[in-house]
């Protein structure tokens, strides 16, 4: 569960988030829309614990949080490691230092699930954009997180891979995981329990935004 209570955050005298209150329950699928520069990234960085709120309180109760960012702008293709090594990284964290036999089985299962097993020895540079994002998704969920945060993971993907990714995210929700999905496309969030709109540092229910006629911003 994530709860923002009257959280504000500013940087260099600019208010990036203004008195935000938001709650994400366990097992819920919440979508976030909004224009670039509206405060979405700051919101996610707070939820992930990268930034600390300057006022208000932020409670995160999940033990295992995973995060998948967008691929565009990243230099994954330059990083020389195999698909198998990439997925294995997802298991390394606070308490885990080495991969044991069980962990290797988990990696194998994740590779099978995302149709990556035949590609496991390939380097990241040898993958297509869609394959790379599936490998990154496998890394994200291999540790069986309870909460998964997606930051426009579909950016830069072609239509087929885009649909496949959204389908996989919906599947994760059906398995009981809590999902926070930031997207540019409202139709990606059809299965979301709630959709919010972040603009000018404020968070509003998407329904409310539609009524105000602002939906063209994201559609």
């Amino acid at each position: 569960m994530i709860e923002f209570s009257h959280v504000s955050f500013s940087y260099a005298d600019r208010a990036l988030l203004k008195d935000i209150s938001f709650r994400l329950e366990d097992g819920q699928f919440v979508g976030i829309l909004g224009p670039n520069g509206g405060g979405k990234s700051t919101f996610l960085k707070l939820a992930l614990g990268i930034l600390k709120p300057q006022s208000g309180t932020l409670t995160v109760t999940d033990q295992v949080i995973a995060y998948l960012s967008q691929t565009s702008g990243r230099d994954d293709h330059d990083f020389q490691c195999t698909v198998e090594e990439l997925v294995g990284m997802g298991l390394i964290g606070r308490k885990k230092w080495f991969l044991n036999r069980d962990d290797k089985k988990k990696v194998e299962a994740a590779l099978h699930r995302f149709d990556l097993y035949p590609l496991r020895k390939k380097l990241l540079r040898e993958l297509s954009g869609g394959q790379l994002q599936r490998a990154r998704l496998a890394k994200t969920i291999v540790a069986d997180p309870t909460l998964v945060i997606f930051d426009e993971p579909d950016a830069g993907l072609d239509e087929e891979n885009h649909h496949r990714l959204v389908h996989l995210i919906n599947e994760l929700h059906q398995e009981g995981k809590t999902i926070l999905f930031v997207s540019h496309h409202p139709h990606d969030l059809e299965e979301a329990d709630a959709i919010y709109f972040i603009e000018d540092g404020e968070i509003l229910s998407y329904q409310h935004e539609l009524e105000r006629g602002h939906h063209h911003v994201s559609l």
């Binding site: 990268i50 949080i65 960012s69 490691c81 606070r94």
Partner: peptide, 10 residues
Amino acid sequence: YSEEEAHISG
């Protein structure tokens, strides 16, 4: 691979 993702994983 990613300092940000490593940080998030603890």
